[in-house]
Design a protein around this nucleic acid. Structure first.
Length: 588
RNA sequence: GGACUUGUAGCUUAAUUGGAUAGAGCAUCUGACUACGGAUCAGAAGGUUAGGGGUUCGACUCCCUUCAAGUCCA
C-alpha cells in the first residue's frame, strides 16, 4: 500500500504546501466495522491543515480519489480517513504477484548471521525448556533465511565441568558397567540418571555430616563425594587418560541420545562448538583489555571492568589466580565465531535468566572496540514453568522432551482415529501423519507466544487440537488440497473477473501481508508474528470456504479464480508453517 | 542493597509500537442448506488492560508510584 503513503504526501504538499517524510504518514489497517481497507490517521496532519480532523480527512480523501486510479472511495470518521481500493487493484496484485510460485521470496541480502541455540549440558536429557529453545532457534534461523540471510546454525555444547564429573563419578561408583546397550536406555537418559544418583548420595552425606555437628555450608564443602568430583575435574583438566576416556564414552552416549531427540524435533545444526575446546579462550582478550585500559587489576590480581557509568556494576572478568569465569570464555568464543565465519550478526538464543550476563558481554566487546559487537543480539526468552513452579531435573520435576513428543503423537493418533479420517492410509502414512499433527500442535503451542513471555505448562491439561492451534492450520491446508484435487486444477486468475466479494477482498489483502509479516518477524526475531499471521489467514480462508461455493459455482471464470485463490492460500500456509518448522499434510 | 522482565475475559493469548467500541481461541450457551472435509462456520455471554496518579486531541503502550510473580549482580 505504498501508493497510499505517496499519494497522501502529494496531497499534503498540494493542499497545505508541507513537505513530510514517508514515516510521518500514519497508516493502519481499517477496522472491520468500517468500510475500507487502509486508514490514514489524520490527527497529526491537522497542524498543517489548520482545520478539523474531519475536514482534513475529507480534503485528502478527495485528492486521493481524484488522483489515484487504485482508490475507489473513502469515508471519514473523526480523525480517521478510511480508503477503499478498487477490485481491479486487488486482482492485479493477486495475478501478478500473490499467485506466483515465488511469492514471498526475498532476494539475498548478502548478509551472514549465526544463530546459536540449544546449547545443552551433557549431564542430563532435554526437557520442555530445551524444546522451547530449540524451536525458537530453528524457527528464527528459517525466518532469517527466508529474509535473504545466509544463516549458520550453531550449537555450543557444554560438555565439561563439575556437573558432568558428578555423573561420571556416580556411574563409576554405582553403575556396575551399565551401558545404553546393556540397559536399553537412551544414552542421555542413562547419564542423567547418574546425575540424579549423585545428588541423592551427596545429600545423604551432607545429612550425616550435619548430624555430626557441621553446619549446612561446611557439610556441603566437606562431603567426600563432592571432593571426589572436584578431584576428577582437576584430573580432567590435567588430561588424565582414565578420566578423559570415561568422559569421552559417556559424552558419546549423550550425543547419540540428543541426536534422536533433535531428529524427532526436526532441528539441526551446521556447526558444533564444544566448551572443552573453548573454555580456555578469552585470556588474550583480557590482556588486550588491560592494555587498552578498558579493564583494571585489583590488589589480588583479579581483573575487572567498571561499568558503573553504564548503570551496571563492576564486573569480574578473570579471577585472581588467573582462572576463567563464564564471561572470560564467552568473550573468547564470540571472537572465535567471528573469526570462523565473519558473520555480520550473531544471535544467542538463551533464557532470560542470562539477560544481565549478555548485556555485560556485549558492552565489554563494544568497549574493546570490536567492530562486530553491534551485530550481537541476545534472543532472550521466558522460562517454561509448571503450575508447581520451576522445573528441576535433580528433583525429577521436569517434563521430559522425548516423553512429551510421544504423548503428542499418541494424542494425535487417538484424535484422528476418533474422527475416522485415515481410510486408505498405509501404516507408514498414518505414522507420518500422527507425527506431523502431534508435533504441529506442540510446536505451534510453544511458538505462538512472544519469546520473552514466560510460559506456563500444565501437564494435566492437554494441548488443544482445535481453535488457535497448529492442527487447525494443518486442517485448513488439507481441506484446500482436497478441493484442488477434486477440481483437478489449481485454477487461474482470469482477467475477466470484474468484481470481488467482501471475503475475497479480505483474503487477498491477508495474503498480501505475508511479506511484511516475514520482515517484521525477522526484525523482531519473533516466530510468534508468523504464527499469528498464518492463523488469521487460515481462519479467513475457512470463512471464505463457508460463504462462497468454489466447485459448484456456475461461472467457470469465477470458479477458476476461486481455485487460484485457494491454491495461493495453501501455498502461503505451507511456506509460513515451514518457517515454524511445522509440516502440513495434504490429507488428515 | 541495586538492576531487569512479566502482569490483558475463568484459562491460553493478540493489539500494525501513541490511534477508533481492547481482537481471538479454549471452556459455557444457541444455531449451520442431509458438507466443495463439522479438527469447520455463524452468533451470545465474558474486560476498571494488577491498583493509583501524571503527560495529550487520544494511553494496554510513555513517565512516576504501590502491589504481585520471576530472574540476575556480589
Amino acid at each position: 500500500m505504498d501508493f497510499i503513503v505517496k499519494g497522501t504526501l502529494e496531497a499534503v504538499k498540494a493542499l497545505y504546501n508541507a513537505d513530510l517524510k514517508e514515516s510521518d504518514i500514519n497508516l493502519q489497517e481499517t477496522r472491520k466495522e468500517f468500510e475500507g481497507e487502509v486508514t490514514v490517521v489524520t490527527f497529526p496532519l491537522t497542524k498543517l491543515s489548520r482545520k478539523s480532523p474531519e475536514q482534513t480527512g475529507n480534503e485528502i480523501g478527495e485528492y486521493l480519489v481524484n488522483n489515484l486510479n487504485e482508490v475507489a472511495g473513502f469515508n471519514v470518521i473523526k480523525g480517521f480517513l478510511n480508503i477503499s481500493v478498487t477490485d481491479s487493484f486487488l486482482l492485479n496484485a493477486f495475478t501478478n504477484n500473490i499467485s506466483q510460485e515465488d511469492f514471498g521470496k526475498i532476494p539475498s541480502a548478502g548478509r551472514k548471521v549465526m544463530v546459536e541455540y540449544s546449547s545443552p549440558n551433557t549431564n542430563k536429557p532435554l526437557h520442555l525448556g530445551h524444546i522451547r529453545n530449540n524451536l525458537l532457534g530453528y524457527s528464527v534461523s528459517e525466518i532469517l533465511a527466508a529474509n535473504g540471510y545466509d544463516v549458520i546454525k550453531a550449537n555450543l555444547v557444554n560438555d565439561r565441568g563439575i556437573h558432568i564429573c558428578k555423573s561420571m563419578l556416580a556411574w563409576q561408583k554405582f553403575g556396575q558397567g551399565e551401558t545404553p546397550e546393556s540397559s536399553g536406555l537412551k544414552g542421555d537418559k542413562l547419564v542423567g540418571n547418574y546425575y540424579v544418583i549423585f545428588d541423592k548420595e551427596y545429600k545423604k552425606q551432607i545429612d550425616e555430616l550435619k548430624a555430626q555437628g557441621q553446619t549446612e555450608d561446611e557439610a556441603k564443602k566437606n562431603a567426600p563425594l563432592i571432593k571426589e568430583a572436584q578431584l576428577m575435574l582437576q584430573k580432567w583438566e590435567a588430561g588424565d587418560d582414565e578420566v578423559i576416556s570415561l568422559w569421552k564414552t559417556m559424552n558419546s552416549w549423550v550425543y547419540a541420545g540428543f541426536e534422536v531427540t533433535y531428529n524427532k524435533l526436526g532441528v539441526n545444526f551446521d556447526k558444533y562448538y564444544y566448551e572443552s575446546n573453548t573454555y580456555l579462550l578469552g585470556k588474550d582478550i583480557i590482556d588486550e583489555g588491560l592494555e587498552k585500559g578498558v579493564f583494571f587489576k585489583k590488589e589480588d590480581n583479579s581483573v575487572w571492568i567498571d561499568l558503573t557509568a553504564d548503570g551496571l556494576d563492576e564486573k569480574l572478568v578473570l579471577r585472581g589466580d588467573g582462572t576463567s569465569v563464564y564471561i572470560t570464555q564467552d568473550l573468547g568464543t564470540a571472537e572465535l565465531k567471528y573469526k570462523d565465519f565473519g558473520v555480520d550478526e550473531s544471535i544467542y538464543v538463551v533464557g532470560n535468566e542470562q539477560d544481565y550476563h549478555f548485556k555485560v558481554l556485549f558492552l565489554i566487546l563494544d568497549k574493546l572496540g570490536k567492530s562486530w559487537a553491534k551485530g550481537l543480539y541476545h534472543l532472550s526468552y521466558g522460562m517454561v514453568d509448571l503450575p508447581s513452579g520451576k522445573m528441576k531435573s535433580r528433583e525429577g520435576t521436569v517434563v521430559d522432551a522425548d516423553d512429551l513428543i510421544q504423548e503428542m503423537i499418541d494424542t494425535a493418533k487417538q484424535r484422528t482415529e476418533e474422527l475416522g479420517k485415515v481410510e486408505g492410509f498405509s501404516d507408514e502414512e498414518k505414522e507420518k501423519l500422527y507425527r506431523m499433527i502431534g508435533l504441529g500442535a506442540l510446536k505451534y503451542f510453544l511458538l505462538k507466544v512472544e519469546p520473552k513471555k514466560r510460559l506456563l505448562f500444565d501437564p494435566n491439561e492437554s494441548i488443544d487440537f482445535q481453535g488457535h492451534t497448529g492442527p487447525f492450520i494443518q486442517y485448513t491446508h488439507a481441506r484446500i488440497c482436497s478441493v484442488l484435487n477434486k477440481a483437478g486444477s489449481k485454477g487461474a486468475a482470469s482477467p475477466a473477473i470484474k468484481s470481488l466479494t467482501a471475503t475475497e477482498r479480505e483474503l487477498i489483502l491477508s495474503l498480501s501481508k505475508y511479506i511484511e509479516t516475514l520482515e517484521i518477524a525477522a526484525r523482531e526475531h519473533s516466530p510468534a508474528q508468523i504464527a499469528n499471521y498464518v492463523y488469521e489467514l487460515a481462519k479467513l480462508y475457512n470463512k471464505f470456504y463457508h460463504e462462497e461455493p468454489i466447485l459448484k459455482v456456475e461461472d467457470l471464470q469465477v470458479k477458476d479464480f476461486r481455485l487460484a485463490l485457494s491454491s495461493a492460500t495453501a501455498s502461503v500456509i505451507r511456506k509460513a508453517m515451514k518457517l515454524l518448522g511445522i509440516e502440513v499434510p495434504e490429507k488428515m
